[in-house]
Simulated assay, not measured.
Amino acid sequence: MPTNDINRRFKERIQRGDTILMPGAANALAARIIADQGFEAIYVSGAAIANTYLAKPDLGFVSLPELAQHVGTIRDATELPIVCDADTGFGNALNVRHTVRTLERAGASAIQLEDQVAPKKCGHFAGKRVVPLDEARMRIRAAVDARTDEATMIVARTDARAVDGYDAAIERAQMFIEEGADITFVEAPNSREEIAGIPERLSGTPQLVNLVVGGRTPILDFETLEKMGYSLVLYANVALQSAIYGMTEALSQLRRDGRMDEDGPVASFSERQRIVEKDFFDDLEKRYAGG
């Protein structure tokens, strides 16, 4: 399906008021598994790319070309909508424009920009800082102006809750809505009451809530968040954290026992080939074989 059609359908669902449960992916394999499990959208997590691709924490190490390459491979692997974490936009408002154009070409359906200083930190780390409001607004204005497909959505994230408090974060999100943001994202609310208050106080604009396993935001069930009025319920790094857990379990058993077969904590050989669509490529090979 063409990316423009994917984007349009995704935006229509958001505008209709649907609530979508969205896991994060660090790479195309994770995206393929997310699609295989029946989820309806994928989040490309900057933290997950930093952790898996560079083995570094989420401290602004991923570059725009590296991010775009990951988005492109994920777009090739699935037709699900992609919400892309673009951190601070990789510079000033002019850089934000370039970032949005680059990620649109790579296949993003929605592009998230935040108001931290560069280099940014994970939203659930201590010691975050945000740029002045005028600079943050210009990032969003530039992003809105830069998109070439009107169905590409701009997600405006604020990390001001940890810096200036809850009310200041809500006020920033309202300013981003005035600049044309399609979705707002108040990062790291610290209580159920704060979570509930975000869609109430920003009524009329779709909201994203980020649930980080082990993070600062309380974990609420999907039905509760749906009733609160959230459009996107994000688990940015469940796939990553489960992969770390699974690899650790399997490798510790291999180290202990000195052997591993399909009765161990691993996917079977056939399941691995199914996920990467080997049968599809076998059919292509036959089609294009000479003779």
Rank of each mutant, 00 (worst) to 15 (best):
G60Q: 02
S191F: 11
D279Y: 07
S45W: 00
I140C: 05
A136K: 00
A106C: 11
I42D: 02
L284Y: 14
G46W: 02
T158E: 06
I14Q: 07
F10K: 06
S109L: 03
K56I: 01
L240A: 11
R32G: 10
V130S: 03
S45F: 01
T73R: 15
K121P: 09
E104R: 01
V213R: 12
Y230V: 04
I111C: 07
Q37N: 15
M228F: 12
A68R: 00
L220Y: 09
R137V: 14
G214A: 05
E223W: 06
R201F: 05
R287S: 08
I6N: 02
D115V: 04
N190L: 14
H124A: 04
A26N: 12
L113Y: 04
A173G: 07
D164K: 14
A160V: 10
I20L: 14
R172E: 01
V96S: 06
F222A: 14
G215R: 05
L80N: 09
L21T: 12
Q253E: 14
L64V: 06
L59G: 12
Y53E: 13
T224F: 00
T205G: 11
A110M: 00
P206N: 09
Q37M: 15
G72P: 09
R192M: 07
L225T: 05
S231C: 06
G180Q: 02
G246P: 04
G107N: 04
V163R: 12
S191V: 10
P65I: 09
R97D: 08
V155Y: 02
R256A: 13
R216Q: 13
A267G: 05
F185L: 06
A86H: 04
G290C: 07
Y230D: 09
P218R: 08
R9P: 03
N27W: 01
R137T: 02
N27C: 08
A55L: 05
F125A: 13
V186P: 05
G60A: 06
G24F: 03
I244V: 15
M1Y: 13
T78E: 09
I74S: 01
I14N: 09
A142G: 11
